[in-house]
Nucleic acid binder design. Structure first.
Length: 782
DNA sequence: ACCCTCGCATTTTTT
DNA sequence: ATGCGAGGGT
């Protein structure tokens, strides 16, 4: 609810966030005076900072100063003498969040005092596993496989089992294993029922084979970083006890995103001192599809009896209308902890719902709106387009290129996932860890050096029987007659090179060694010789890779960083509009937010509904909530009556979420294209005998669902009103017009057809000039 | 070893 | 539509 609309001059967030410098001096708390870092917190924030002991759940809605509370809490723990930095465990999900927290904590504590146990779940998992690797059957220098390696390994296992990879795709097994690991299941605990989901009941056995293979490779995948850490604690009470007493205080960020393993792992640790503080927002739980379990946060008070729950509901980001709309929408979800954002800020702009004719018009009007905002002094950096699916991005990109509007796409393919970077890293891995078979396989004939599958098969076979890695197998085989002369020589050359590179790595700075490896191996030359347009970019990436190694003490540290971080910070110059998915937008904020594609099927996404029923719908709704709450000043929602999906045009109904927005807080607009259609086009259809159905979005949706006959559970009456007459949805009549045909358009008058593209006609109108119009608006000239 | 064609899927993504 | 991967042909 909007509690007050008076403008507050002392918005603590607005003042304290951008200007943290100079770093507040850490004063001793508890001398009667309030420690300076506590000043400027609102009462709830302050309660969340000061409730140090016992379990605490901080329900932090969007834009309530969550990060500030977390970092201040850490500062308070240290300043009050409750814990020293190395006695605090602070976990986040993303590297970005960890980095941000580390930076802000260091402003309080002074940069010399690091927080060794502040990091992502995975990085902390690695750290703990390296300390006790042997207890889970690994050597301390184990390698961390990325998804690519993981998949290739699974492929090999399926091949060894003679499974048809058409029928049983490796990807499917990979995601099953991933899911099992997310839920804390090792192969022995996978139920027969679940196991039957793959290769006729062999799922669990294949999982076991995969785990065994990882162990022989001395490797772990991402899931293991959590699962093995859990196993370590479960099977070694002494190790667990040591960590329980080490971590006097535990903080968890984004608790709503935790999965089962993370939860179990945390719970074990928290059972020690009991000082666990989880911060999260059940309304922003949008990662259920990758194992996050909202129930963890919903169950917190049960899991941790006597837990204190603190709600942060004072929002410092958005105007009152935006918050009211977001609140009205999310209120349609059941199973929430319940929390309503409010603000002292003015009501501000009403979120606008805009109906457009099709996705091209959508891109056009969004582009125009951005240019308009730009003219009014809005920086492009403060503008974002948040889409449900990345396939929606293309149309915006095309339009923005055409109009010369600078943009950036957030969350495309990541740096360390590029093929050339993976290849280069594979070389470095082979240098650092000669037994890294997956790395060796990747580069042993890359660039082409005449070593083919046949030789590799021999190495595999020999290595397997001798129980040694591929590199060692190669070393042994070049001494014998097993291999034909030519491959033997080629292999010998390669091994000699690696010996040389390893020596170099010890003697010269590692980035120079890396450069040497990439040059001498012919890898750089391979790309230089390639004359495809993207080769230059790849060479740049390789340069960037080598350059980025400079910041690390040695090759091993660099490789560890890479496997955990998987991305580099990119510095980009100039103002740009951001285009990203709603998922990628979580945690960000913009003055002006565009939310296109609010149509049934796309958003809420049909697949989410089909796969997960009401839970899926509610997660979609949370996604909508996340999108709306990104906006500081203005949110614009679009729905198109027609959209090209998978190559063909489909008509679509406005999203049910639009009906759920509180009508008093939104504004409704429609563009000419949509208006003409819904407006006086209808009577023409009637006259023309098309039997034009005049429908509300709601009735149309009802019909769509009736036809579909699904049971996804959307019987609930729409809470809002519908926007009558705004978007009539109809399939385009089938008949066509010949090129050159004389036609009459309700708005543009007479003209001649130039060309047709499906239901869209390009027409030279006698008076209005050339226009692209929908066929359904024209009739043959009388 | 390379190229071409065919078939297939196509929500969201971190570590 | 489009792009990616596998498989087959040259």
């Amino acid at each position: 609810m909007i509690r007050s609309v008076a403008q507050s001059p002392d918005n603590p967030e607005a003042e304290a966030f951008p200007s943290f410098e100079p770093a507040p001096r850490v004063a001793r708390a508890g001398h009667g005076r309030v420690a300076p870092y506590l000043e400027g917190l609102n009462p709830e924030q302050r309660a969340a900072v000061e409730a140090l002991d016992g379990p605490v759940l901080v329900l932090a809605g969007a834009g309530v100063g969550k990060t500030r509370v977390l970092t201040t809490r850490i500062a308070h723990l240290i300043a009050s003498g409750r814990a020293r930095p190395h006695e605090i465990l602070a976990v986040t999900f993303t590297n970005k969040a960890a980095r941000e927290m580390r930076e802000r904590v260091s402003l309080f504590t002074g940069s010399h005092q690091g927080m060794p146990w502040l990091g992502t779940f995975h990085s902390i998992g690695v750290k703990i596993l390296r300390m006790h690797a042997e207890l889970v059957g690994l050597r301390p220098n184990f390698t961390i496989l990325d998804t690519d390696d993981q998949l290739r390994l699974i492929k090999q296992i399926l091949q060894a089992e003679n499974l048809d990879d058409k029928r049983w795709p490796p990807r499917a097994l990979a995601s099953l294993i991933d899911g099992w690991k997310n839920r804390g299941l090792d192969p022995a605990h996978v139920s027969a029922g679940e196991s039957s989901a793959f290769a006729g009941g062999r799922g669990a056995a294949l999982y076991a084979a995969y785990q065994a293979r990882l162990k022989t490779l001395n490797a772990v995948d991402f899931g293991d970083l959590l699962l093995e850490a859990l196993r370590l604690f479960r099977e070694n009470a002494d190790v667990l006890a040591a960590f329980q007493s080490r971590f006097r205080y535990i903080l968890v960020d984004e608790y709503q995103d935790t999965n089962a393993v993370q939860y179990l792992w945390l719970r074990l640790l928290a059972q020690g001192r009991g000082n666990v503080c989880c911060v999260g927002d059940d309304d922003q739980s949008i990662y259920g599809w990758r194992g996050a379990d909202v129930d963890n946060i919903l169950r917190f008070e049960k899991d941790f009896p006597g837990a204190r729950v603190i709600r942060l509901e004072r929002n410092y980001r958005s105007g009152g209308h935006i918050l009211a709309v977001a609140a009205g929408l999310i209120a349609h979800n059941q199973g929430r902890l319940g929390k309503t954002l409010f603000t002292d800020a003015p009501l501000g702009d009403r979120p606008t719902v805009i109906g457009v004719w099709d996705s091209q018009e959508e891109a056009r009007v969004v582009g125009d709106a951005i240019e308009d905002a730009q003219r009014h002094g809005v920086s492009l950096d403060d503008v974002a387009i948040l889409v449900r699916a990345s396939s929606q991005m293309r149309e915006f990109e095309e339009r923005f290129i055409a109009m010369g509007l600078p943009y950036k796409v957030i969350g495309g393919p990541r740096f360390y996932e590029r093929a050339e970077i993976r290849d280069a890293l594979a070389y470095l891995r082979c240098v650092a860890q000669p037994d890294d078979d997956l790395a060796f396989e990747r580069i042993y004939n890359q660039p082409k050096r005449g070593l083919g599958d046949a030789t590799l098969a021999i190495l595999h076979e020999f290595g397997r029987r001798a129980g040694v890695s591929l590199m060692r197998a190669a070393q042994m085989l070049i001494e014998t007659e097993e291999l034909k002369a030519r491959p033997r020589q080629l292999l010998r050359d390669l091994l000699l090179s690696f010996d040389r590179w390893r020596k170099a790595a010890e003697e010269i700075p590692h980035e120079e060694a890396a450069q040497l490896v990439l040059e001498e191996s012919g890898y750089i030359d391979m790309w230089k010789a390639e004359r495809t347009p993207d080769a230059a970019g790849r060479l740049d990436n390789l340069k960037e890779l080598v350059r980025s190694m400079g910041g690390f003490p040695d090759l091993g540290a660099f490789l560890e960083h890479v496997s955990l971080v998987m991305d580099v910070e990119s510095a980009d110059a100039g103002q740009r509009v951001s285009i990203m998915t709603l998922h990628a937008a979580k945690g960000l904020e913009f003055d002006l937010v565009f939310l296109p594609g609010w149509e049934e099927g796309l958003f809420p996404n049909q697949r989410a509904l089909d796969d997960n029923g009401r839970a899926g719908l509610e997660e979609e709704r949370r996604l909508a909530y996340v999108g709306l709450t990104r906006a500081r000043r203005t949110a614009k929602i679009y729905h198109a009556a027609n959209r090209r999906m998978r190559g063909l045009w489909q008509s679509s109904a406005p999203s049910r979420f639009i009906d759920e927005l509180p009508p008093d807080h939104i504004a409704v607009e429609e563009t000419e294209g949509a208006a003409a259609f819904g407006g006086y086009g209808v009577s023409r259809f009637d006259a023309a005998g098309f039997g034009g159905r005049y429908e509300t979005p709601g009735s149309r949706r009802a019909e769509v669902f009736r036809q579909r006959g699904d049971g996804s559970g959307f019987g609930r009456a729409a809470a809002g009103r519908s926007f009558d007459g705004k978007a009539v949805v109809r399939a385009a009549p089938a008949s066509g017009f010949e090129e050159g045909a004389r036609v009459f358009h309700v708005k543009f008058g007479p003209g001649s057809v130039v060309s047709a593209d499906g239901p869209k006609l390009t027409i030279d109108f006698d008076k209005a000039g050339r226009k692209l119009v929908m066929e359904s608006f024209v009739t043959a000239e009388p």
